[in-house]
Design a binder for these strands. Structure first.
Lengths: 137, 137
DNA sequence: GTTTTTCTCAACCAATCGGTTGAGAATGAA
DNA sequence: TTCATTCTCAACCGATTGGTTGAGAAAAAC
């Protein structure tokens, strides 16, 4: 559904079964069959979960005869962490002691206040993140 | 759907609009109406998105007359980061130079190899993570 | 009081999700 | 070739999602 990499990654980890698969693969690679033994669902269902993880870039698969060993790809996790951390850090800075000072700066610095509270944009179109960052979403 | 906090958080950030809302709230609190101006959808839709974020613990809301200012809650982001980082770190350790050594240890150490490749469990029930960690999922 | 502003709730809809079953592709073994 | 193993694809199903519209609650302003 969500076309972008980041959405796919978050969607992928939103399911408990898929998070459990990621946890297992962090220890060692595994085949679809091996993974499927652990869950109360068909191998087809597990295969579907792996497809979601694969399309999110979280898992890659090689070939070993009939088997399709699954391998965790940590870089995809980095992408998520860096997105989250960016905004967490930003939010926490706001609660720091410099809060009042920064707020005062906000009122005069148009770059950090792209859409000031009173200044209502007439049109919706571009996302806030698009207007203000490189590629946050 | 997913009942646990972590699932809710990942579900919440899986939607691009909701990530954009989080990005905006990381800079400053905002009301539903202010947020809704930026998106090509009704205020009701934005209100629904905020409800999802709120139930995930990512956003809290106070009261100011009719207005319901939304406030980002960074701790919920921490929860996600720490889950992701745990398994990313684990996976990356596997690719380190000690890989061969650890693999050899795995074959003898039953604690780090709870379900050895050949040892097939007869029953599915508990998740892998439940059996091997505190509360990973 | 009435009206305005801000927001949520309820009902609805098409699309997607997470599971199922059944068929079959791909590979290695007999 | 035939058979067994491992896995994916396709079709289907009920439940959930992300949006809509319409009605109305809550608070301040008139």
């Amino acid at each position: 559904m969500a076309v972008d990499q980041l959405s796919r990654a978050f969607v992928a980890l939103a399911d408990p079964t898929r998070r459990d698969i990621v946890a297992r693969l962090s220890v060692r690679d595994a085949t679809v069959g091996e993974l499927a033994e652990s869950y109360a669902m068909s191998m087809q269902a597990v295969s579907k979960h792996l497809k979601v993880l694969e399309e999110a870039g979280l898992v890659s698969r090689s070939r070993d005869a009939q088997r399709r060993p699954c391998h965790l790809e940590p870089q995809a996790l980095d992408l998520m962490t860096s997105w989250i951390e960016r905004y967490r850090r930003r939010a926490e800075e706001r609660f720091s002691r410099l809060d009042a000072v920064l707020a005062a700066m906000d009122d005069t610095d148009a770059d950090t206040t792209p859409a000031s509270p009173g200044t209502k944009a007439d049109e919706p179109r571009p996302t806030w993140a698009e207007k203000n960052e490189g590629a946050p979403s």
